[in-house]
Amino acid sequence: MMKPWKFSVALAVTGVCLLAAPLAVAPKAAYAEPVRVAEAAPAQTAPGGHAVAGGHENVVDEHAVTFPPFDATTFPSQLLWLAISFGLLYLLMSRVALPRIGRILEERHDRIADDLEEAVKHRTESEAAQAAYEKALNEARTKANTIAGETRDRLAADSDTNRKSLEADLAAKLTAAEQRIASTKSDAMSHVRGIAVDTTQAIVNTLIGSTPASADVERAVDAALTAKDAA
């Protein structure tokens, strides 16, 4: 079983070999060109070892001798065309493409801002409507309360009046009844003396067989009544 670090080392070594091999092949392929060898590579010998068999069949033109990115003969052309193409790109971007995209974004931004503004307006309106509704509701409620209160007061007053008149009626009847009782009572009391006199005459008659004089009897009854009243 392979340990992880061994695997890493093997991978690294393989990688280095893989990268090194073609680089080693490259100069050999370049210097294999008969004419250029004398001029460009006077002393260097190519590393042999793992040269690919096809190396000598390469079609190598004059630029293969120097590494292309460092081939100064191509610099003027590259700079010229870079200047022209990049200049063109800059012009096209700054004059045409970017203002165009910028305008689109600006239009959208404006549109969104407008829509938001409208939404805010609508919200304000709806809030105002809500406030008006609540105000109306409150007014209606107050009004209903007032009406209810008034009705209650009126009913209370009515019943009060009824009650008072009834009470007055009753009181009047009571007074009348009391007066009648008093008169009946005084009537009755006034009859008591006559009855007493008659009774006394009857009793005396029964006892002695003769009827006493009314005046005497009346006097005796009065005296008795006075004594009773005094007692």
């Binding site: 073609p22 092949v25 096809g54 390469n58 033109d61 292309p68 052309s77």
Partner: peptide, 11 residues
Amino acid sequence: MTVDPIHQFQI
């Protein structure tokens, strides 16, 4: 078929 990895950079 070339076996030159820097061939692709040639001007």
